[in-house]
């Protein structure tokens, strides 16, 4: 966290044209889990513009290293080693500092470590698939992991998820709370996926596709993907209404 005074303005209205609608029948589970009534619009009150903040003291050194945080001593998980990094920004382009970012994923074979998961690809005894970090003063984050594999799911008869990493992000206000998924550049499965296709805007989908970033790759160790996440921006409250810093 920085010494800047906290911002207390309400958040920009959410642009629903770039978000998936609740009812997206190509993704079958959404059919019975989507509200049919309109959302009631509400400009953020204190209850929405505030939100929990998690200090860096929450973190352990391996929380953002999925290669090591579940591995048995002297062993390593199998699969392509990658660094995932980027910034958490808001719609004004400001870095969001102190943002808790949680992530989870399948292993290299597309198998999740979850008791309700029964895909025949095996569990990797050295890979848990969970991590977290908190952005620095510029909104920057990074973690090391194994690139996940695609996996099949019971939606259509032959539906497969593209390789993806789930992200859960806390900004500074509870209105900014966001869960999304990161996809990988060049994966042809992205454009087949009913969950991806719940997003009505092609450019919005492309913003969820992380670019291969050879500049940040670690030679003879791991390649890198860069993934920026944008949270809602916020207005200045009146007493902060000056040009500089806005």
């Amino acid at each position: 966290m920085t010494n800047k005074p906290p911002e207390t303005g309400p958040f920009f209205a959410r642009d629903h044209s770039i978000h998936p609608p609740a009812y997206a029948p190509g993704y079958k589970t959404s059919i019975l889990r989507s509200p049919q009534r309109a959302l009631i619009s509400l400009e953020g009150t204190k209850s929405e513009i505030t939100g929990p903040v998690f200090g860096h003291s929450l973190l352990n050194p391996l929380d953002n290293d999925l290669i090591l945080n579940y591995a048995r001593p002297g062993e390593l998980p199998i699969g392509p080693r990658i660094l995932v990094h980027g910034r958490v920004l808001d719609e004004r382009g400001k870095g969001v500092d102190g943002a808790l970012v949680e992530f989870w994923q399948a292993n290299a074979g597309g198998r999740y470590l979850h008791k309700k998961e029964s895909y025949l690809a095996p569990v990797d005894p050295n890979f848990g698939g969970v991590g977290r970090t908190i952005t620095d003063a510029d909104g920057y984050y990074w973690f090391k992991t194994i690139q996940p594999g695609a996996y099949p799911w019971p939606n259509g008869v032959n539906d497969w998820r593209p390789a993806h990493i789930h992200f859960s992000v806390f900004g500074h206000g509870f209105s900014q709370r966001l869960i999304t998924q990161m996809y990988f550049e060049g994966d042809p499965m992205i454009w087949q996926c009913p969950i991806v296709k719940t997003i009505p805007d092609k450019a919005a989908i492309e913003r969820l596709v992380a670019a291969l970033d050879m500049t940040s790759a670690i030679p003879m160790d791991m390649r890198a993907y860069k993934f920026d996440i944008v949270l809602r921006g916020r207005r200045s409250t009146l007493f902060e209404n000056r040009t500089e810093g806005n």
């Binding site: 998936p20 004004r92 979850h114 789930h166 998924q181 969950i195 450019a203 919005a204 969820l208 944008v230």
Partner: peptide, 29 residues
């Protein structure tokens, strides 16, 4: 202005990331 990142479902395995101990992934957090 930037555009907000689009939301996606948390999926059936959200607990792996958000409550890992609850689903038996112990020792990470």
């Amino acid at each position: 202005y930037f555009k907000e990142s689009a939301s996606q479902t948390a999926g059936p395995y959200v607990h792996i990331g958000c409550t890992p101990n609850f689903v038996g992934i112990n020792g990470v957090f």
